[in-house]
């Protein structure tokens, strides 16, 4: 039987990923070959890649995850749903009902946080799923991991504010390493305020307790014409100088669209 090697990188995006998906969905199940890839080192990027992999599975597949060549875990999935997560060194009972998403999320987090080179190999699952097997959707997993919300809220705010921003700094991790655009004279102010906002400037910390992984921010009027907006969610953040009226309207628009 002809074997079709599907080697689209798990982190591929845009046209390359779409091509891979179309090719995969168009391939008869019997010809689907093993698919393997090395996942990124960053735990968050690993989770993203695993969720993407599960989201692309229709027919039952078993995914073997190896760390530095040694088997770490097995996942099984079908119909874009995760059916099981078995960590080899720590076998546990199969979760069911309301706890399934959080239990699977905890196990995926443990897998993603394991140091070493993580490789993923998926193949057609020989055992057909039983009708009463509990499974978990990728959407539920994203919610349990705080993944979708984290990405969408701050990205959406950035997308809304970018077209009207006089200057803008957005970052993942360290504002000092963030992406700046706009009038250069504002950069220092954006960085300084971002650090104070994040409680990293050696003064009284802002240290607000974010509600259940949701975005939060403040807008400070600088003059009758301009405001500075600072927002964050997890390790992502945004600082922007905006026209006064348009900036405040953008916040309400962001809330309305959420």
């Amino acid at each position: 039987m002809t074997q079709v090697a599907l080697s689209t990188p798990l982190s591929a995006s845009g046209p390359a990923r779409l091509d891979g998906l179309l090719r995969r969905f168009a391939t008869p199940a019997g010809r689907l070959a093993r698919r393997s890839a090395t996942l990124p080192d960053d735990p968050r990027a690993r989770l993203d890649a695993l969720l993407q992999e599960i989201d692309e599975i229709m027919l039952p597949r078993r995914i073997e995850l190896r760390i530095d060549g040694k088997t770490l875990a097995h996942l099984s999935a079908y119909s874009r749903r995760l059916a099981s997560v078995e960590i080899v060194a720590r076998p546990g009972s199969r979760p069911t009902g309301e706890t399934i998403a959080s239990d699977f999320a905890d196990r995926l987090l443990e897998i993603a946080a394991t140091p070493g080179t993580l490789t993923c190999r998926s193949a057609r699952h020989q055992n057909r799923p039983r009708a009463n097997d509990s499974t978990c959707s990728v959407g539920a997993l994203k919610a349990a991991l705080g993944f979708d919300v984290q990405r969408s809220e701050i990205v959406r705010l950035t997308e809304i504010m970018t077209p009207i921003a006089i200057a803008k700094l957005d970052w993942v991790g360290d504002p000092g390493q963030g992406q700046f655009s706009g009038e250069g004279a504002w950069r220092q102010m954006l960085e300084q305020h971002a650090l104070i906002f994040l409680g990293r400037a050696g003064r009284k910390t802002f240290n607000r307790q974010a509600g259940a992984g949701r975005a939060e921010g403040i807008a400070i009027p600088l003059s009758a014409e301009t405001i500075i907006v600072l927002a964050r969610l997890s390790d992502r953040g945004l600082a922007a100088i905006l026209p006064y009226e348009a900036g405040l309207k953008a916040i309400a628009f962001w809330q309305a669209a959420g």
């Binding site: 807008a219 009027p221 600088l222 959420g258």
Partner: peptide, 11 residues
């Protein structure tokens, strides 16, 4: 203006 007002916001 600066320091007289702040808008704190969430979704």
């Amino acid at each position: 203006v600066y320091g007289t007002s702040v808008v704190s916001f969430t979704a």
